[in-house]
Design a protein around this nucleic acid. Structure first.
Lengths: 276, 276
DNA sequence: TCATCTCATTCCACTGACTGGAACGTTTCG
DNA sequence: CGAAACGTTCCAGTCAGTGGAATGAGATGA
């Protein structure tokens, strides 16, 4: 019930819905993936509902996962464990990106005192790698590890503008989901915006994903200097917040991160995009 | 070769070394766990060496993990994928703790401009959940998702002081590993320190885990007000950094987080400690 | 240039780990 | 107090998974 949210279900991105529910591993991954960023605890019944696994199997595999320390057994069900968190933090790309970027994000926050995001592309969505903000930031629905569509967020537009043309066209030719009255759903308009992003080095978003929120973003370039490996953004509420005024600061932060990446050429930026 | 570090290998904590390498799931988890925070890319041969799996099996399971999006196949081997990062970030306890704590950590950083940590206990080690700092913080060896022993870090001492007596005694009765010349290896001395931590609400560390580093930490209390669910710390270099001067700020940040936790009593803080 | 490593990948016949439906307790709720 | 939903246990069949061996692909060195 409560997991119905308007963000794209991650499950859809991976096409393993039915692909491999017949192997142990497939079942295990399906169970792990049945947790959304909104969930704290999932009952066995809920897991069964979401994954479509037979009750018996779900029970057994979930139990095994607990045994392996990837799931915790709570009073009313299961939840992703600290061990899972630990493993996730060892994902090399995200972790090293985060470590390199953190000081710059920090600076950016201090300069603006608005919510700062760092995001990367995965499939056809933004995945947030970091989010820092003060006490007054209850509004933004983004969560670290959460997803948002590419076409209606500043970070997404930046990444899309610098993406491989094939991937960009894939997004532009599919129907652009409307999220608010301000969401850009006309491919032509969006394409023109993306072109100007390449010139200016920043993208804006004005209540296109969430009412009341404005955003500026700028790309973090990879080693080749062509493709963006990530993007930095500053978000604030309609009213006091003027995104244009922060464009320079955001651009500076993003370029700072880019140059640090360039300086230590061990973090390979793979061009591997979403698998067919 | 390069993965030899003096931090406790997480593998030791879970006793699945040989326990269940015979099930698919066991193999999969073993492969995932064979990545340490230092590793970027692991070759198949290296995975085989660390896990002890037969080459054929390792190859097959690793391939399956790639298919399920938990591993990426890079040029020279495998690495933990962004999907893994995403999953890890959904671990409810760590994630909600992080979200609640972030604004306070932010404040603390702005006030001190020194490296700020947030850590929790897992087994008999500290696991870092957040680390924020500026450009001048290359020294601290800690990493988000990384581990450190309890007895030689400020965060560890705070958590130990507020831990279940049984767990505390387990640590105190085992030999305390020496990490520097300043590491406290005398159980009696450590126990006395822990007692004073309960009074003062802060713990100090002076080059006990890493030479040249000083640290203050304070506990984040759970709903019951007795046990600590996490701890906040500020770290700085010998010389300019005076930990005592930051004790108040650290305590304030930790208490701020504690009170937010208390205010929204949905985040259950389970008393479940490390399983036997 | 060729020999000799090491690593990655493919193959295949055997087998026991995994399967999932059904039956049994337990809790929740009207 | 029934009824419904949930969690747990059980078990015989079988197919997914197994791992040793052979082959291909690269790297190293003399």
């Amino acid at each position: 019930m409560t997991y119905l949210c308007d963000m794209p279900r991650p499950v859809e991105a991976y096409r393993e819905d039915q692909t491999a529910l017949e192997t142990v591993l497939g079942k295990a991954v399906a169970i792990l993936r049945s947790f959304t960023p909104e969930d704290q605890i999932l009952s066995l019944a809920e897991i069964v509902r979401r994954t479509g696994l037979p009750k018996g199997s779900a029970h057994r595999v979930a139990g095994d996962l607990v045994g392996h320390g990837l799931l915790d057994k709570a009073a009313r069900g299961y939840r992703l464990s600290g061990g899972m968190f630990e493993l996730g933090m060892r994902a090399s790309v995200e972790r090293s990106l985060l470590e390199l970027a953190m000081p710059f994000l920090q600076d950016l926050y201090e300069r603006t005192h608005e919510t700062v995001h760092l995001g990367v592309t995965d499939g056809q969505a933004v995945v947030y790698v970091a989010k820092i903000g003060g006490h007054r930031q209850a509004n933004a629905p983004s969560r670290v590890g959460g997803r948002m569509p590419l076409h209606c967020t500043a970070i997404g537009k930046v990444l899309l503008a610098h993406a491989d043309p094939v991937d960009r066209n894939t997004v532009l030719s599919a129907p652009l989901q409307r999220r608010t009255a301000h969401t850009i759903v006309a491919p032509g308009l969006l394409r023109r915006q993306l072109e100007s992003v390449l010139d200016s080095g920043v993208a804006f978003e004005r209540e296109e994903s969430t009412l009341g929120l404005l955003c500026v973003a700028s790309p973090v370039m990879g080693l080749d200097g062509r493709t963006a490996v990530a993007a930095v953004s500053v978000t604030g509420p309609v009213g006091r917040f003027r995104p244009e005024l922060h464009a320079t600061a955001v651009r500076a932060a993003a370029q700072g991160i880019s140059s640090v990446i360039a300086r230590r050429a061990d973090t390979r930026s793979p061009s591997s995009s979403a698998g067919a």
